[in-house]
């Protein structure tokens, strides 16, 4: 099978976000520095250690996951939506590219941007505190799977959205609040029992918790719950993307 077309589209997608690295790579690093300064340094000293880990060490994995989620999602969603808006998405449709080639080219760029952002946040975190790693395998699993998941979700959103307002609905009303409430800044054990139950319905909590396990080796929810949920959601969004592309959902009349 010829993969030249797939590599060309991947290259285009990667060069697209690298060309504007000031808008795609740097902002999440600045956000993370701000959170580390405010919560980690000034307020964090007043918060007792969580599960034996300093508060700053507790929030860094969450901040990293936050950056990964946002970067993966916004890369595929904005790239594909702008392509749709300009009509340039037709270039992919009239070319001999298969549906999965288009999906994976977009996704690889999303994953790569997420990993670059994650590495950047990790690098700036090291300026403030030392970091230990409990399980490299789990770190790799969560960073790759979560960025795949949100890359697929971004593609599905871009295909579905008919205008800029619809485009922003999920990021504004779902992903951002769920991320902030997804255990980045607190452990479930710090919450009253009612809210401790409510937050368990937030899928992002599991991603943050599982990823944090990779660093500190401690979880709020059983690790296999997190692994399973991430796998299920990733497969779900992948199948959704393939189905939408195959059907030509809002792409072909």
């Amino acid at each position: 099978m010829k993969l030249t077309g797939f590599f060309a589209l991947t290259e285009r997608e990667v060069s697209r976000f690298l060309r504007v690295w000031q808008q795609t790579i740097i902002p999440p690093m600045i956000t993370s520095i701000l959170f580390i300064l405010i919560f980690g340094y000034s307020l964090g000293s007043k918060i007792s250690a969580v599960a034996g880990v300093s508060y700053i060490g507790f929030i860094i994995p969450g901040l990293l996951m936050m950056g990964v989620i946002m970067s993966a999602y916004s890369n595929t969603s904005s790239s594909l939506y702008i392509s749709k808006f300009q009509g340039q998405v037709q270039e992919y449709l009239v070319a001999p590219l298969s549906y999965w080639q288009i999906i994976f080219a977009l996704t690889i760029a999303g994953v790569l941007r997420a990993i670059l952002v994650g590495a950047g946040i990790l690098a700036v975190s090291l300026l403030f505190t030392s970091i230990t790693v409990h399980s490299y395998a789990m770190l790799l699993f969560f960073i790759v799977m979560v960025s795949l998941l949100f890359s697929f979700a971004g593609i599905a959103t871009a295909l579905w959205a008919g205008n800029f307002d619809q485009m922003n609905i999920f990021a504004t009303f779902l992903i951002t609040p769920l991320t902030y409430l997804g255990g980045v800044f607190y452990s479930i054990s710090m919450l009253p029992s009612f809210w401790g139950t409510v937050v368990r319905f937030n899928p992002i909590l599991y991603m943050v918790d599982g990823f944090r396990y990779g660093f500190i080796g401690i979880t709020d929810v059983p690790l296999w719950h997190s692994v399973l949920l991430v796998l299920i959601l990733t497969v779900f969004f992948f199948v959704l993307c393939v189905w939408m592309f195959k059907k030509g959902y809002k792409l072909r009349t």
Partner: peptide, 22 residues
Amino acid sequence: EFNLDQFDKVYNTLFFNAGYFG
């Protein structure tokens, strides 16, 4: 209708499209 990437250069547009066609 015009359906080009408005923000990309002419050369790159052709370079990537040539790639899409293998």
